[in-house]
Amino acid sequence: MPHSPASFECADAVELAKGLIGALLLVDGVGGTIVETEAYLRDDPASHSYRGRTPANATMFGNSGHAYVYRSYGLHWCFNVVAEGHGAVLIRAIAPEVGIDKMIMRRGTERNLCSGPGRLARALGITDVYNGLILTEPPFFVQAPSERPSLVSGTRIGISKAPERPWRFGLRDSRFWSRPFTPQQPRNAGKTDER
Rank of each mutant, 00 (worst) to 15 (best):
H3K: 02
S4V: 07
P5S: 12
P5Q: 14
E9N: 14
E9R: 12
A11Q: 15
A13D: 02
V14T: 08
V14A: 12
L16F: 06
K18H: 10
K18N: 06
K18S: 07
L25V: 11
L26P: 11
G31P: 14
Y40T: 06
Y40D: 08
P45H: 00
P45Y: 01
P45F: 00
S47W: 01
H48G: 09
R51N: 13
A56P: 02
G62A: 12
N63W: 05
N63V: 10
Y68F: 11
Y73V: 05
H76E: 08
H76D: 12
W77M: 10
C78Y: 04
V82N: 07
A83E: 06
E84H: 13
V89N: 07
R92E: 12
R92D: 12
I94F: 07
A95C: 13
A95N: 12
V98E: 12
G99N: 09
I100D: 07
R106Q: 12
T109A: 02
N112Q: 11
N112C: 09
L113K: 04
C114F: 07
C114W: 05
L120M: 13
A121T: 08
A123F: 09
G125A: 04
N131V: 01
G132P: 11
E137D: 14
E137H: 11
P138Y: 01
A144R: 04
S146F: 05
R148Q: 15
R148T: 15
S150Q: 14
P166D: 00
F169A: 04
R172C: 14
P180S: 06
G190C: 04
T192I: 11
D193V: 01
